[in-house]
Amino acid sequence: IVTVLAKYENQINVFSEFLEDIPDTDEPVWILGAYYNVKTGNMTSAVFQFMLMLYLWAVGGTGPSSDTGWGCMLRCGQMILAQALVCRHLGRDWRRVADGTQPVEYQRILHCFLDRKDSCYSIHQMAQMGVGEGKSFGEWYGPNTVAQVLKKLALFDDWNSLAVYVSMDNTVVIEDISTSGQRQVPFPFSHSTSRSQQPLDWRPLLLLIPLRMGINNINPIYIQALKECFKMPQSCGVLGGKPNLAYYFIGFIDDELIYLDPHTTQSAVDSEMGTAVDDQSYHCQRNPRRMKITSLDPSVALGFFCKSEEDFDSWCNLVQQEILKKRNLRMFELVEKHPSHWPPFVPPTKPEVQTTGAGGSNVLNIT
């Protein structure tokens, strides 16, 4: 372990101030479904685990030349999606090796987020797709709008083949996920003793659940349920923050949330397809921050990534046991059937677009 730590001394120093500032408590640190006992366990191990995770950082920046003042929630949306793509292609246990050879999939993921019009999840594409959600270019987004934008952009992304499901009215509907071509098996809470033997058409799923957990501030009754979400192995973080200040929340310790702050404008990163991307600005170069859970704006979007059907079943069971059965006032609902009083569910399809750009690059112009 000494040899390993020496190799990553520079990155460890980045987080030393954060760790020294952690309160003297027996409470564990939870980060994206992983548990760390800072006081009695191996604190250095905790550093080693999360300091090397991929978190997209603000890499550019308003109007045609910068995203300052309006792009923070879009950047947080990129972060949560990037985390899902890393889990999808490289696995949850993968860690970036500083100054080392990175997998080809890692470089392809970075290319998806370059600040250029022909990158599928660039801020240009997200802002353009947001026009269809009633947002003018350069207007600040909320968590729900970003979730809707990611759902639409994923339809144009053949390589990642990611299904993005955004819940409606605080309700996740199993039948609707099935209708989207995700699964063709019985609801995991049914008492059926045998599972369907028909072929499954499962695509890795990014599940986003926009919520309003209070009026002006988060209702304290939801705090424990929010903590339980960070404990789930499928956790992909939470989009939220304060009014007009977006953060990407990755975990908690005691009564504080741990988050990454995208409000650091940096020079845009550009690279041609097939060439390596300088990834320094794609990773947090300074300490994660903390804030009281009670200071959280009540508008959030929970994120979960389920790579397989079994992973989704496990998430459903965790929600049933830790959120639905233990809470009188539930943070969200998980139901088997599409509610009869709702409009019929329509599986997401590609919006009508025109592709423009030099060399036929896939730039979306919504019509």
Rank of each mutant, 00 (worst) to 15 (best):
W94R: 04
A147I: 01
V335P: 09
N160M: 08
L5I: 08
Q280N: 06
L296P: 07
C120Q: 00
E133V: 09
L296H: 12
N216V: 11
L90D: 06
S340E: 14
S66Q: 01
E272R: 14
G241Y: 00
N10E: 05
Q102H: 08
G181E: 07
N365I: 11
L110I: 02
L329I: 14
S267V: 07
N217R: 15
D169C: 12
L206W: 06
D297H: 13
L54G: 07
N317T: 13
F15D: 12
L211P: 00
V38D: 02
Q83F: 12
C112V: 04
S136Q: 08
H111R: 06
I31H: 03
N144E: 12
I250N: 03
H341A: 02
D99P: 04
V319Q: 03
D201S: 13
S180G: 07
L150N: 01
G138F: 05
P347L: 11
A268N: 10
Y282F: 15
N365E: 05
G41A: 02
A268G: 14
L205A: 02
V238F: 00
L302Q: 07
C72G: 08
L32A: 11
K326G: 04
Q107I: 02
L206G: 00
S180I: 00
P64A: 08
F332I: 13
R289W: 04
S192K: 10
G181L: 02
I31G: 02
Q320A: 13
L54K: 05
F113W: 04
R92Q: 06
Q354M: 08
P23Q: 06
S271N: 09
D279N: 09
T101Q: 09
Q107R: 10
E336H: 15
E228L: 07
N10S: 09
W70V: 03
T40Q: 03
M168Q: 14
D176H: 11
H111I: 04
V131N: 05
I223S: 00
S281M: 09
G251C: 06
V353E: 06
L206A: 06
F304Q: 05
I80L: 15
W57P: 12
D26I: 11
G100P: 06
V173C: 14
L155E: 05
S235Y: 11
K117L: 03
P233I: 12
A225H: 00
K135F: 13
P347F: 14
V353R: 05
P64Y: 09
P339G: 01
I174F: 15
L207N: 03
R108Y: 11
N365D: 07
K151M: 15
T349M: 14
G360S: 10
V38G: 00
C229K: 04
V353W: 01
I223A: 04
D270F: 12
S314I: 15
S192C: 10
S66W: 03
K227N: 14
N328M: 15
A301V: 13
T367P: 12
K135I: 13
P288Y: 15
T349F: 04
P348I: 11
L19M: 02
K7R: 14
Q354D: 09
P344A: 08
S196N: 12
K350D: 06
G142D: 13
I258T: 00
Q224P: 07
S295C: 07
S190M: 07
V149M: 01
G71W: 04
R290Y: 10
S271F: 09
G357K: 05
M73P: 00
C236Q: 10
R290T: 11
L200A: 11
S178E: 13
C306T: 10
E256P: 09
S281W: 08
I109Q: 00
P186L: 06
E133Y: 06
